[in-house]
């Protein structure tokens, strides 16, 4: 079972806060981490390897420092890691990202399953997985919450939808995105950390992938960010004053006025 796990390094936005005075991001103490949704993808990949043998390759497109996320992936059980990094990759939208990843997957060769997280914490689009599957022309299943069985070149999985879950069968190779319900990711081990420190992580650039520069990064992106701004929160609210009982009374009055009670 050859598994490829796609992951992204993101700022740990659980800690991202806005400075209310300046309306800017408070960056202090923010570390870059593996996108939390991708940790479930990695864990599932490692579990598949433990169940069926084979190997797990972690793959990430990003700036040079994204190597840190790949080292962590190795400490968590990935056998190999590949960093796709080139100045030309910067500014990629989901299409250009999926295209770059697809080129790297094709260069890597044979695989059975590609696992991605359901979305990233920063971009939050959830589009790269499905786009990747189309570029590789393989089946795709989103929001997988359980891999039930893999046998005879077929996999049977459960995937979550709003109303419940569906059981879906797909032939290998296939691309899936996973949700956090699928597993509890393990913590790194000391031996894994030692191994990850000496792991050789190749960096693949535009010439390595043999891709057209105009198809990757900002140049290859069909969507362009034209404006970035901080959401303005205008406080027009009314904070009631006085005794608590009176405040509740005031609130009741307002809700009655609005026809809600």
């Amino acid at each position: 079972m050859n598994v490829i796990v796609c992951l992204k390094q993101v700022p740990g936005t659980a800690q991202v806060k806005i400075d209310p005075e300046t309306n800017t991001l408070i960056r202090e103490g923010i570390e870059n981490v593996i996108n939390p949704f991708d940790t479930y993808a990695l864990e599932e990949g490692v579990r598949l390897k433990e169940r069926f043998g084979g190997k797990v390759t972690a793959m990430s497109m990003g700036p040079p420092q994204a190597e840190g996320a790949l080292r962590e992936a190795v400490s968590l059980g990935a056998d190999e890691a590949i960093l796709l990094s080139d100045k030309a990759f910067a500014g990629a939208d989901t299409w250009a990202t999926a295209y770059t990843l697809a080129s790297a997957v094709n260069k890597l060769g044979q695989y059975d399953i590609i696992i991605c997280g359901r979305q990233t914490l920063d971009g939050d689009t959830g589009q790269v997985g499905p786009e990747l599957s189309e570029m590789l022309e393989v089946p795709f299943v989103a929001y997988v919450s359980r891999i039930e069985e893999i046998a005879d070149g077929q996999m049977r999985v459960q995937r979550m939808v709003e109303e419940g879950h569906e059981v879906i069968e797909a032939p290998l190779p296939t691309v899936i995105t996973v949700v956090k319900e699928i597993n509890v990711p393990r913590l790194p081990s000391l031996r894994g950390i030692v191994k990850s420190k000496s792991a050789v992580i190749p960096v693949w650039t535009v010439p390595d992938l043999g891709v057209d520069q105009s198809r990757v990064g900002l140049a290859g992106s069909f969507t362009k960010v034209i404006k970035v701004f901080f959401p303005q929160r205008v406080c027009q609210g009314e904070i009631f004053q006085g005794e608590l009982g009176n405040q509740v009374e005031c609130l009741m009055g307002k809700l009655k006025d609005a026809g809600l009670v």
Binding site: P188, R191, G192
Partner: peptide, 16 residues
């Protein structure tokens, strides 16, 4: 799983 029990065991016996 995190190898914490290996910390105090010599390397010859699968420790750290």
């Amino acid at each position: 799983d995190a190898d914490m029990f290996r910390v105090f065991v010599p390397e010859e016996y699968e420790g750290l």
